[in-house]
Design a protein around this nucleic acid. Structure first.
Lengths: 227, 227
DNA sequence: CGTTCCATCTCGTAC
DNA sequence: GTACGAGGTGGAACG
């Protein structure tokens, strides 16, 4: 890892072309060859960058200025013209053990698979990731009256999710095995459901369920403590 | 901008929880208070971070280790336990003049608006951003036989785009002014169309058009050279 | 201020 | 490898 603070101008040409006028910025050169150009604000995204694999060549222009050229195999190029280096240092970081995550949609699906009745009374799980021709339904359940219930789970419930569940229901309702006792019901479950999504779901006869992740996790924890 | 290279352990708790074991990493603290944790690989995305607005508090744990606590207003917290500082420096970058971009989807729409016949022979433009109750259609055109044609443009054509165009067509086909010569046709135009999107489009009678951005730009340049 | 949609998206994962 | 969906998506444009 090499860190350079320098007054520089940056030009990128690839999927798009982009230009950064001369100013002082931080250049981060990683061990895999990737280069990041950061300013003192914005967010975690660099102003400009080159993803690995790529190679950095350091040269000088005709008028003697330092010029870095970063090229990738896909013919993208990043040209950095350096006017003045304010700081430079190199560090051996070693390999990183990597990030451990927890608490995303998959986990929400696991929790709801364990507690389907929290979505609608009497609901029991048939199977997770129930396959259809256009992809798996998150949860396939059955209600107290033997009707099939398809559940689509999102962290944030938006219009796309309702469309997705609608497509699944359309297919599922062509399956005689599932519709013997009546049409397949749909439940749209999310931690947060946007108004437009709710309207569309209601219009299509799909029930909405707002899921309290912390409460579910609480139930889960207390049940595990019992055993 | 403050740069710190340190052996550290990081824990994030917010929308999800994430943990980084003790290892040497680069910590970037920006003027707006945001903090980035970078390893020596991956890509432009940090391993962990905190977006502004947030505040960094430096303290020590009970056993005397340095501990940074970064908190945002949304109750997210980033805790960085520092075992050893390898490098530290601060730099005044000033404000950045910002990035100038060119060549994204808007530009693609402009090019297709100038050359609608490249989508389908005989097509002429009626107007860009044709308004409907649920949003504007990218291009409204008319074909050689006087039929209305709605065009949805994406850089990458995925299933969502087909859904969007379907909703537009549903509305447009209720307009007597547009359907006097027959139903409104749909064209789904993109630089790249995913197989599933193509299947769905075909199933709904929507034509797909793969757009060659460079070729279009070439036509455009040569036409401009004529004048 | 909320909502929508793009992105040099990045990133995981199933096929 | 390719395709597909999620993201602590971020960010901008628009109403």
């Amino acid at each position: 890892m090499r860190l350079v603070v320098a007054r520089c101008q940056v030009d990128y040409a690839g999927r798009l072309t982009a230009h950064l006028p001369m100013a002082t910025r931080v250049l981060m050169i990683k061990a895999d060859g990737s280069v990041l150009v950061h300013s003192d604000g914005g967010s975690y995204k660099p102003l400009n960058w080159m993803s690995p694999p790529c190679t950095l060549r350091e040269g000088t222009t005709d008028d003697g200025q330092v010029e870095w050229t970063v090229t990738s195999k896909t013919a993208d190029t990043l040209r950095i013209l350096i006017e003045e280096v304010v700081h430079e240092s190199s560090h051996d970081l070693g390999i990183d053990p990597g990030l451990q995550k927890d608490g995303v949609e998959k986990h929400l699906q696991e929790l709801l698979a364990e507690h389907p009745a929290s979505l609608s009374p009497g609901l029991t799980l048939v199977r997770r990731e129930f396959p259809t021709a256009i992809g798996p339904v998150d949860l396939m359940c059955r209600d107290g009256e033997g009707l099939s219930v398809a559940v689509e789970i999102k962290r944030r419930g938006e219009i796309d999710g309702v469309e997705q569940l609608t497509r699944y229901l359309e297919l599922l309702n062509r399956e005689p095995l599932l519709t013997s006792k009546g049409p397949v019901r749909g439940i749209f479950a999310a931690q947060e459901i946007k108004p437009q999504a709710r309207v569309l779901a209601t219009d299509r006869g799909i029930a909405c369920a707002v899921v309290d992740y912390d409460a579910l996790r609480g139930i889960d924890d207390s049940e595990h403590r019992l055993f």
